[in-house]
């Protein structure tokens, strides 16, 4: 079985469980993914398959990638990622991988690119507390505070300071799969996942 699938975040809503519990869910359009290249132990030293997701126009694909896809006779595709498999010889190029590799109640790990927050201060970026709001304080409300000890005579590398936040690769682990819809290629998972609507997500089977 393939260890994961590619998907696109569609947004959030909520659904009712049978007992009336309201569950917040993220809706992910996942697959169908095409198998492109197979990696085998004999040739590459490990077992894996390359999966492609989201068909696009021919002119949208760069020439090196187009020739790679052409080699395996796969249609032009936007996203390509590699996934582990136990035995890659079971798969052939062009085969489809669908959401039925998961089932309801499974735990998955989801990888995405978080939303960009721009240049953010230390309170938002590193959960600092900021300065006191009262007791005669002035102009020191959301500041970083001390830069460190004085005898070092320098600021150490890695000091948490304001800077660019977001657009990071974020993995959220142990997300519960609430529902699978094979017809519409949908996965509903509990809670939120990183990224904006329409962003690429990698959904890995947990463990």
């Amino acid at each position: 079985m393939v260890a994961g699938i590619l998907g696109e975040k569609l947004g959030m809503t909520r659904i009712f469980a049978k007992n009336g519990e309201s569950i917040p869910v993220t809706v992910i359009l996942a697959g169908p993914c095409q198998v492109i290249q197979k990696k085998t132990i004999e040739k590459d030293g490990y077992n894996a398959v390359q999966l492609g997701f989201k068909e696009v126009k021919e002119k949208k694909v760069s020439k090196p990638i187009a020739s790679h896809l052409n080699k395996y006779k796969v249609k032009p595709i936007k996203h390509i990622r590699e996934f582990k498999v136990n035995d890659s010889n079971k798969y052939s190029s062009g085969a489809e991988v669908k959401v039925d590799i998961f089932k309801e109640g499974d735990k998955v790990d989801i990888v995405g690119i978080s939303k960009g927050k721009g240049f953010a201060g230390a309170i938002k970026r590193h959960n600092f507390s900021g300065g006191p709001k009262t007791h005669g304080q002035k102009e020191y409300f959301r500041s970083v505070g001390s830069m460190g000890a004085t005898d070092a005579a320098r600021v150490f590398k890695g000091k948490k300071l304001p800077g660019h936040m977001g657009t990071d690769r974020v993995t959220v682990k142990n997300i519960e799969v609430i529902k699978i819809n094979l017809e519409r290629n949908l996965i509903l998972v509990r809670g939120s996942v990183p990224g904006a609507k329409g962003a690429l997500l990698v959904i890995n089977i947990n463990g």
Partner: peptide, 13 residues
């Protein structure tokens, strides 16, 4: 494109 979220919400209603 089909609005899948709208569809899901209609099914819930």
């Amino acid at each position: 494109m089909v609005d899948y979220i709208k569809q899901l919400e209609e099914e819930q209603s």
